[in-house]
Design a protein around this nucleic acid. Structure first.
Length: 841
RNA sequence: GCCCGGGUGGCGGAAUUGGUAGACGCAUUGGACUUAAAAUCCAAUGGGCUGUAAAGUCCGUGCCGGUUCGAGUCCGGCCCCGGGCACCA
C-alpha cells in the first residue's frame, strides 16, 4: 500500500479490472430475485454536468448496495439521442446531427466510465438508432389502427420569422425570467423576439385523454412509493372536475344548431346566469353574428382575440374583454332570455368552448359583468349571510343555501348540484359530466432529427399506416439543414415520394417526426432485451426484469416525461406488448445542483465541470461530496470547501489504514473474543456494529448524507483507539473492515483497493453486505437523562433492560437531581424505559 | 390567487415514533510539528449571565398562541423563502 492516496492511479486500475472482467453485465437468473435500478438517461449534449453526476451517483450507490444484498441488479444506461440541439449544431456548424450525436455519446461515455458507475454497458443503445425507433413506429401504426394516434388541426404558437411551431415554454411570458438579455415582452419568440401568432396547423396526437381516469387512479396507488409532490402535480395536470353539461336553447337556430352546450361544475348556480360567453375560436362565434347589426364589430373582436398567443391570453393582468353578439338563448330552467357574448377568457380547448356566466358566484364572470355593466344575481347565500349584488366586491364561490332558484330554493348548494343535474337529465337537456384539463399529447414536430411518423398519404387509398415489413421508415442521411422553410423532410424528394403499398400508385410520406418524449417513454423496456428483433421487448426477459424497482431523476420531469411514460406503458399493455400497469414502482426525485444559490448554467457562468473535479480529486471524492453535502431530495449548493472536506476524509481513511496495516495484517479472519474484551475496546466494537446498522438503515431510506456521516464518526472513533494487547487488535481489524465495506457503495474504487490490501482476493462487488451483531448493538449501556420539571439536570449510564423502579431509584439518588427537588413536593414521576426519568415537583 | 416543499449556529446540514437541540462536515480561532510555509495532528467554537477556576444558570429551532410532565417534532393563526399550476367554467 502506497503511503499517499492517489485516486487517479487506483481509480484507473479498478475501472480497468471492472471493465475487462465485465463485472456489471447481468443475465436473467430465475433463482435470484431481481432488482431494476434506473436513472433517467441523458441527452447527449456533449458533456456530463453536475446534475448527471448527482443523479448517477445516487443510482450507483443503490445498485451496488442492492447487489451486495444478493439481488440480481439490472443497472443500464443509454442515450436520449434525438432532439433539437443536434439540429441546431447542424445549422450553425454544418456538422451532421448523427455525427454530432455519436461523437457526443463517445465523449460522455468516457466520462461515465471515469466516474466508475456500475452500468451494464452491453445493454447501451441510442434512441436515434433505426433498430430502436423501428418498434416505436410499429407501435404508432397499432395506435393509429385503434384511433389512439390521430391527426387533427389545432391551434399552436407560431413564430413567423423562424417559421416554426413553438412550445408554450418557448414563448416568452414576462421579461427577465426566461430572456437571457432581459428586455423581452409578452408573447414573443424566445430566439428572435418576434411576435408569436396563433395558427391552426395539422398534426398528430396521442389520445392520452382516454387514459386520464386510469392515470389519476394510479396516482392514489403510487402514494407510498412516489413523492407526494410529483403525484399532486400530476393530479393537478390531469385536472379532473365533475359537473354537468346543460343545453341552453337558442332563440333562433344558428348553422343548424338549436342550442348552446355548456359545462359547469356549479349546476346549483344555474338560476344566477345573466349572460353566456363563447370562445373566440368557437365555430359558432362567427356564424352567430352574420347578418346582424353588430357583425362588423364582433368579427373585428374575434380576429383580434384569435391573434393573441395562448400565453398572452392567460398572462396575469390581461383584461377580460368581450363583445355582445346580439343573439339570445333561453335558460332551460327559468325560460329567461340570456344575452350571448364572445369573450377572450373562454377557452375553446376546455369543456365545450361555451360557458354560462354567473357573476355572483364566479370571480371571472363577476369581473366581466362589472366591466360591461351586466346584472349580478345572487342565488347562493352563505350560512346566515345576506349577500346583495350592490354590496359585493367579489364573487361568492363557496357553499351555501340556494335562493331565487325556483323549485330548488332552500336546498344546500352541494345537494342542489345533484338535484339540478338530475332534473336536467330527466327533462333531457343536461347530464352529469366529467372534464379533464389534460389535453391529448401533440407529438408532431416539423424537425429532421427525430423518428419519422410512419404514415403515407395516397390520393386513392387515403391515410395509411406503413406496414410492418416496410419498417423502419429510416431518416434519410443525405440532408441539408438550413433552419428555414419548415419541415426538412418535406424537401427531400426521395423521402417524400413513395408508393402506396395498397394500390401501388404514387403516395407521399408524412414528413413530421415524433416528439422525443416518445422515445423516453419506453427505453426502460428496451434495456431488458436490447438486441431483441421480434418486437419492442422480449416477453420472457421483460417479465423477469420489469417493472423498474427504483427510478431516479430530476424533479423537473415530474409531469411531462413521467406522465408520458406512464401513459405509453398502459398503451403497450393494452396492445399486449408488455404486462405492466405502471413502469416505475418507486420514484426518487433528486434536487438540483446549484452554485451560489442559482442553477448552474453557461449564461450565468457558474458551472463546475465534473472533469476538472475528477482530475483534481478523483471520482470517489466527487461522489462522496455530492452525496454528503445535502439530502438527495433537496437542492445541493456546490461548495469548493466542501469537496476539499470530502477529499480530506478519503485521505484520512487511506492514511489511517496504511498506518495500522502492519498491526492488523496478521489478524485476517481473527474475530474479536467478546468475552475477553472490555472498556474502550468493547465500546469501539459496539460503535462498529451500531454504525453498520445506522448506515444500512440510512441506505434503505436514501439518507446518504447521514450514512456517510456515520462512517466518518466510525473513522474518528477507531482513529482515537489505541489497542491494549493482542486481544484488542482484532477489534481494530473488524472496525477497519466494516468501515471499508460500508464505504464501498459510495466510494467503490478506494474501498476495493483497500480491501485487496487487507489481503482479500475477492472483490467487494459480490461480497455480501455487512451484518451487525444484534447482541452488541442491543447490549450497549444507554445514557438515561434525568429531568426535573422537564429540564435536563443530570444523566446516568444504565443497561437497556434496567427496570423502571431501578431507574426511578437512580434518579432520586442522583446528587444533582437531589439539589433540584429538595424541599419540594413530588407531584409525578415519568419513566420512559431506555430514555429518561422526569420528576415533576 | 390555488397547491406542494422549506425556515434549526458564521455556512451545508443532524435529531427515524413527542424524550439530551446543533451529529457529521465546512469555516474561524488557538496550539503542536516545521528554519518557514503547505499538509497533518490536537483543542475551542449558539448566545447571555455568575465564577479565578471547576462549574452553574437562563435564553435559544421564522413569529404569536395552544396541547403536554416534556414540542424543532403535534394543533390553531400569521410572516418569509423556493417550486409547481394558473381565466380549466
Amino acid at each position: 500500500m502506497k503511503e499517499t492516496y492517489n485516486p487517479q492511479e487506483i481509480e484507473r486500475k479498478r475501472q480497468k479490472i471492472w471493465n475487462e472482467n465485465r463485472v456489471y453485465e447481468v443475465k436473467e437468473d430465475p433463482d435470484r430475485r431481481r432488482c431494476y435500478v434506473l436513472e433517467m438517461f441523458p441527452y447527449p449534449s456533449g458533456r456530463i454536468h453536475m446534475g448527471h453526476v448527482r443523479n448517477y451517483s445516487i443510482g450507483d450507490v443503490l445498485s451496488r448496495y442492492k447487489r451486495a444484498l444478493g439481488l440480481n441488479v439490472l443497472h443500464p444506461i443509454g442515450w436520449d439521442a434525438f432532439g433539437l440541439p443536434a439540429e441546431n449544431a447542424a445549422i450553425e456548424h454544418g456538422v451532421h446531427p448523427a455525427k454530432w450525436t455519436y461523437e457526443n455519446i463517445a465523449q460522455m461515455r468516457e466520462q461515465l466510465l471515469r466516474l466508475g458507475f456500475s452500468y451494464d454497458w452491453k445493454r447501451e443503445f441510442a434512441t436515434c438508432d433505426p433498430n430502436y425507433y423501428k418498434w416505436e413506429q410499429m407501435v404508432f401504426t397499432r395506435m393509429f389502427d385503434l384511433g389512439l394516434a390521430y391527426k387533427r388541426s389545432s391551434i399552436v404558437n407560431w413564430c413567423p420569422s423562424c417559421e416554426t411551431v413553438l412550445a408554450n415554454e418557448q414563448v416568452v411570458v414576462s421579461g427577465a425570467q426566461f430572456a437571457p438579455e432581459g428586455n423581452k415582452e409578452i408573447g414573443r419568440c424566445w430566439r428572435c423576439n418576434s411576435q408569436v401568432e396563433q395558427r391552426e396547423m395539422e398534426g398528430w396526437f396521442f389520445k392520452i385523454t382516454s387514459y386520464a381516469e386510469e392515470l389519476l387512479d394510479w396516482c392514489e396507488r403510487l402514494k407510498d412509493s412516489w413523492p407526494d409532490r410529483v403525484l399532486t402535480m400530476q393530479k393537478h395536470w390531469i385536472g379532473k372536475s365533475t359537473g354537468a353539461e346543460i343545453e341552453f336553447p337558442l332563440e333562433e337556430p344558428i348553422d343548424g344548431e338549436r342550442s348552446l352546450r355548456i359545462f359547469t361544475t356549479r349546476p346549483d348556480t344555474v338560476f344566477g346566469v345573466t349572460f353566456m360567453c363563447i370562445a373566440p375560436e368557437h365555430p359558432l362565434s362567427e356564424s352567430i353574428v352574420i347578418g346582424r347589426d353588430r357583425e362588423k364589430e364582433v368579427i373585428e373582436f374575434i380576429k383580434r382575440a384569435r391573434k393573441q398567443s395562448g400565453v398572452e391570453r392567460i398572462a396575469e393582468g390581461v383584461k377580460k374583454e368581450g363583445v355582445f353578439t346580439g343573439a339570445y338563448c333561453l335558460n332551460p330552467f327559468s325560460g329567461e332570455r340570456i344575452p350571448i357574448y364572445i369573450a377572450n377568457f373562454v377557452l375553446m380547448e376546455y369543456g365545450t368552448g361555451v360557458i354560462m356566466s354567473v357573476p355572483a358566484h364566479d370571480q371571472r364572470d363577476f369581473e366581466f359583468a362589472k366591466e360591461y355593466g351586466l346584472p349580478v344575481r345572487v342565488v347562493i347565500q352563505p350560512d346566515g349571510g345576506n349577500l346583495s349584488p350592490e354590496g359585493m366586491k367579489s364573487a361568492y364561490e363557496d357553499e351555501g343555501i340556494m335562493v331565487n332558484s325556483g323549485y330548488f330554493s332552500g336546498l344546500n348548494s352541494e345537494v342542489g348540484k345533484k338535484n339540478v343535474t338530475d332534473y336536467a337529465e330527466a327533462k333531457g337537456f343536461g347530464r352529469s359530466q366529467v372534464n379533464y384539463k389534460l389535453r391529448d399529447w401533440g407529438i408532431s414536430r416539423q424537425r429532421y432529427w427525430g423518428a419519422p411518423i410512419p404514415i403515407i398519404y395516397c390520393d386513392r387509398c387515403g391515410t395509411l399506416a406503413v406496414p410492418d415489413e416496410d419498417l423502419p421508415v429510416e431518416l434519410p442521411i443525405d440532408v441539408e439543414l438550413t433552419g428555414e422553410g419548415g419541415s426538412p423532410l418535406s424537401k427531400i424528394d426521395s423521402f417524400l415520394n413513395t408508393r402506396c403499398h395498397k394500390c401501388g400508385g404514387d403516395a407521399k410520406r408524412e414528413t413530421d417526426t415524433m416528439d422525443t418524449f416518445v422515445e423516453s417513454s419506453w427505453y426502460f423496456l428496451r434495456y431488458t432485451s436490447p438486441d431483441y428483433q421480434g418486437g419492442m421487448v422480449d416477453k420472457e426477459r421483460g417479465e423477469y426484469w420489469l417493472p423498474v424497482d427504483q427510478y431516479i431523476g430530476g424533479i423537473e420531469h415530474a409531469i411531462l416525461h413521467l406522465l408520458y411514460a406512464r401513459f405509453y406503458t398502459k398503451v403497450l399493455r393494452d396492445l399486449g406488448m408488455c404486462d405492466l400497469d405502471e413502469p416505475f414502482l418507486n420514484l426518487l426525485t433528486q434536487g438540483m445542483v446549484l452554485k451560489d444559490g442559482a442553477k448552474m448554467s453557461k449564461s450565468l457562468g457558474n458551472t463546475v465541470d465534473p472533469d476538472d473535479m475528477i482530475a483534481k480529486y478523483g471520482a470517489d471524492t466527487v461522489r462522496i461530496f455530492m452525496l454528503f453535502a445535502s439530502p438527495v431530495e433537496r437542492d445541493l449548493d456546490w461548495s469548493n470547501e466542501g469537496i476539499e472536506g470530502a477529499y480530506r476524509f478519503l485521505n484520512r481513511v487511506w492514511r489511517f489504514i496504511n498506518e495500522r496495516l502492519h498491526i492488523i495484517q496478521d489478524f485476517k479472519g481473527v474475530k474479536p473474543d467478546i468475552a475477553q474484551i472490555s472498556g474502550s475496546a468493547k465500546e469501539l466494537l459496539i460503535k462498529v456494529h451500531k454504525t453498520i446498522k445506522k448506515v444500512t438503515d440510512d441506505l434503505e431510506r436514501f439518507q446518504f448524507n447521514t450514512g456517510i456521516a456515520a462512517i466518518m464518526e466510525l473513522l474518528n472513533a477507531v482513529s482515537r483507539f489505541q489497542p491494549n494487547g493482542k486481544d484488542e487488535i482484532p477489534v481494530v481489524r473488524e472496525a477497519i473492515e466494516a468501515m471499508v465495506r460500508l464505504l464501498y457503495p459510495f466510494a467503490p474504487h478506494i474501498s476495493e483497493e483497500i480491501w485487496e490490501t487487507l489481503g482479500y482476493k475477492e472483490t467487494l462487488i459480490d461480497k455480501a453486505w455487512v451484518k451487525w451483531d444484534r447482541g452488541l448493538v442491543g447490549s450497549a449501556s444507554i445514557i438515561i437523562v434525568l429531568q426535573v420539571n422537564g429540564k435536563v439536570r443530570s444523566q446516568v449510564l444504565m443497561d437497556p433492560d434496567t427496570s423502571e423502579e431501578e431507574m426511578k431509584n437512580a434518579a432520586f439518588s442522583d446528587e444533582k437531581v437531589k439539589s433540584h427537588i429538595s424541599g419540594k413536593e413530588i407531584k409525578k414521576v415519568i419513566v420512559v424505559p431506555k430514555k429518561l426519568v422526569n420528576i415533576v415537583v
